[in-house]
Simulated assay, not measured.
Amino acid sequence: MLETTAKKRNHLYQFRGQQLRYSHRSNCRANAPFVFNDSKGKRKELSQNQVQMEVFELNEFCEN
């Protein structure tokens, strides 16, 4: 089965119009939240359902 909530650390994602950088998945409990940081460094914890339904990966472009 493909894990639809698999996220890559330090990748940029969008959640409800806000850009967030994935930090890690908390290991403190069974239904641990996914931890993201916004551009101001504020921590945002999202449930697995929110991640599956509302979080989309964004492509970052860098200049050479």
Rank of each mutant, 00 (worst) to 15 (best):
R25H: 04
Q48G: 06
G17R: 06
K7C: 06
Q14S: 15
R43N: 05
G17D: 07
Q48T: 08
R29H: 14
V55C: 05
L2T: 04
Y22M: 05
K8P: 02
S26T: 02
V55F: 06
E57C: 04
G17K: 10
N49F: 09
C28W: 14
N64W: 12
F34A: 01
F34G: 02
N31V: 14
G41F: 01
L46M: 04
F36V: 06
R9F: 02
F61V: 10
P33Y: 10
N64P: 13
N64I: 13
G17M: 09
Q52T: 12
R43G: 01
H24W: 04
E3K: 14
K44L: 12
L46C: 04
A30M: 14
E63W: 12
Y22T: 01
K40I: 00
D38H: 00
L12Q: 07
C28Y: 14
E45K: 00
Q19F: 01
E45H: 00
Q48I: 11
A32I: 06
S39M: 08
Y22D: 01
R9Q: 11
K40Y: 00
L2D: 09
V35N: 00
E54T: 06
K42Y: 05
T4G: 11
L58K: 13
K42C: 05
N37V: 11
S23I: 03
D38A: 00
F36P: 02
N10E: 12
D38L: 01
C62L: 13
F61D: 03
R25M: 04
N10M: 13
D38R: 01
R43I: 03
Q14T: 12
Y22W: 08
N27F: 13
A32E: 10
Q48K: 15
H11A: 14
S39D: 12
F61R: 07
D38Q: 02
R25W: 03
D38C: 01
S47M: 05
